[in-house]
Design a protein around this nucleic acid. Structure first.
Length: 517
RNA sequence: GCCGCAUUCGUCUAGUUGGCCUAGGACGCAAGGUUUUCAUCCUUGAAAUCAGGGGUUCGAAUCCCCUAUGCGGUACCA
């Protein structure tokens, strides 16, 4: 048996991400792709995007485009795939339809598979019959002899059925009582006995292969060296292992990733959880073409691609050091399959926010300003770029998402019309209006009109009148901002300008007086 | 039901050749500090008897067995 290390040394790894286009890509799927990508990059290998659309019933229009757009956004690049081609094209299984039949037939000819003519109705009936006896029906070594298939029918009967167009499937024929051993790079050795397994359908009556056949055939044809996929595939890996044996092919190395769990309770993270707990489960926003229902995405929620990638990478993997913030390049350097953990990881919204905050802080004021200008436009605000840039510089350290910029600085663009009641109650005294009027006058007269000179002028007023900062600053802030929040007040005054400041002070005095009669 | 996988602070995890672990870090939480406010930031703190029980050993989170719990699979879905 070759080890993972051997094959890495012998040849460059080829890995694939193989989603099925049945809807928007789940964030767990994004992580699976990410691990594949990191693995490929780390070892100088090839990363492939293959679309597994063998289930025509579940096909959702737009899903494939969504997948491609997701990785474009994340800047995770494929070397081969549906959208870019490659020497093993086509990469869409529906376009490889004719390939699979001959492999299924090879299996039948070599006694590794058989035709089965049992109708879905007959199978349902069989299952119900077993259920009545409190048993579970299993189309396998114990029951296949009593079913309608090429093992029980004569060759003549089988031929007649096929020639007259009777629908049939091809099932895998497990050898009796055979111990199947799978080596997993993350979990070690996994053993299962063949008599416990179902004779899985490999080829459906609609002329398409099932996942099991298509996946093995394509992985072999595309020279995939490592299959890195979700843990939900672990139970069917013995079948895949047997398939490689039946074809006399060298199997790839397997690595089954732990699941992404919902933040509360247990179980796989699902679409519903996102809506329920207020965070996206999808990388991009998705409008369901059927129900027209919209699900939120990380991109639209203001997450930065690299922050998402960093967070996702650490959900189930850890470099073993205390470093948590890692660029894509560092991730590639540090990544190793062996360090992937075995148990499922719960998604944590707070930590996701923290990651984004870390990455936002690395962005330049210029970049943030460009983004913010777009947001301002949506709020119908047309402000000079220079002004906006000054504001961004001031509030940058307070934000975790680009969208927070608006929340943190909207008072720069729109004068407050209401004032925090709590603060009024606590700070607004009888002499406040008079004091503020005097402050307004001082501000109007301050020259040069700069942060430091404003600071000096107001401080001087405060000491001269035997006051302390708190007595003036809180109400002044309330007048200008409407609440007890925001950056340095003198900076605010400086940016707002004397006229606007005086206007706001007067407005606050009259509004608050009115409301307190 | 059957089969498989997993189980260290609330969460993500370090720990992997048994001793340096009176179990480390991060998020979150609490307290204090900085500040004119809020946030940031800084400091400190609480927080896992390593699922439980048996072994093996001078010594186990680390090895073995059992139990429990959780999850995954059990489709002519992937």
């Amino acid at each position: 048996m070759t080890t993972a290390l051997d094959s890495i040394n012998n040849r460059k790894p080829r890995v694939r991400f193989a989603p099925s286009p049945t809807g928007p890509l789940h964030i767990g799927g994004v992580r699976t792709a990410l691990y594949n990508w990191l693995f490929a990059k780390k070892h100088g290998g090839t990363f492939i995007l293959r679309i597994e659309d063998t289930d025509q019933q579940r096909f959702v229009p737009g899903a494939e485009e969504y997948i491609i757009e997701t990785f474009k956004w994340l800047d995770i690049d494929f070397d081969e795939g549906v959208h870019i081609g490659g020497k093993f094209a086509p990469y869409r299984q529906s376009e490889r339809e004719e390939i699979y039949m001959k492999y299924a037939q090879y299996l039948v000819e070599n006694n590794w598979a058989y035709y089965a003519f049992d109708t879905p109705e007959a199978l349902d009936e069989k299952r119900r019959e077993f259920e009545r006896r409190k048993e579970t029906f299993q189309y396998g070594t114990l029951t296949r002899a009593s079913m309608c298939n090429s093992l029980t029918l004569s060759a003549q009967e089988v031929n007649d059925k096929i020639n007259t167009g009777t629908p049939y499937v091809i099932r895998f024929k497990y050898p009796d009582n055979h111990e199947i051993v799978v080596e997993d790079m993350i979990r070690g050795t996994v053993k299962v006995n063949s008599s416990l397994l179902d004779d899985k359908v490999l080829f459906k009556s609609d002329g398409m292969p099932t996942y099991h056949l298509a996946n093995v055939v394509d992985d072999h044809l595309m020279e995939i060296t490592h299959v890195i996929r979700g843990e939900e595939w672990l139970p069917s890996t013995p079948l895949h292992q047997m398939l490689y044996q039946a074809f006399d092919w060298t199997p790839p190395q397997f690595a089954h990733l732990p699941l992404l769990l919902k933040p509360d309770g247990n179980g796989k993270l699902s679409k519903r959880d996102g809506d329920r707990l207020g965070f996206p489960v999808f990388p991009l926003q998705w409008k369901d073409p059927q129900s027209r229902e919209t699900s939120s995405g990380y991109r639209e929620s203001g997450y930065l691609p690299d922050a998402l990638i960093n967070m996702l990478a650490l959900l189930g993997w850890n470099p073993g050091t205390e470093q948590e913030i890692m660029s894509k390049d560092e991730l590639i350097q540090l990544f190793s399959i062996e360090k992937v953990s075995k148990s499922g990881a719960k998604f944590n919204l707070e930590k996701a926010k923290w990651f984004n905050q870390q990455y936002i802080q690395k962005l330049s004021v210029k970049t943030l300003t460009e983004q913010f200008l777009l947001i301002l436009k949506k709020h119908n605000i047309d402000a000079p770029a220079e002004y906006v840039e000054n504001i961004v510089a001031l509030v940058k350290e307070r934000i975790s998402f680009i969208n927070d910029l608006w929340e943190e600085s909207n008072f720069f663009f729109i004068a407050p019309t209401s004032f925090d009641e709590q603060i009024i109650k606590k700070r607004w005294k009888e002499d406040t209006p008079q004091r503020l009027k005097e402050i307004a006058q001082i501000i109007g007269e301050t020259s040069p009109f700069q942060r430091d000179s404003l600071h000096n002028a107001i401080s001087e007023y405060i000491t001269q009148n035997n006051l302390n900062m708190g007595q003036i600053m809180n109400c002044l802030r309330l007048s200008l901002v409407g609440a007890a929040k925001g950056p340095d007040l003198f900076e605010i005054i400086n940016l707002l300008g004397a006229n606007e400041v005086v206007k706001r002070i007067n407005n606050a005095i009259s509004t608050i007086a009115k409301n307190n009669i």
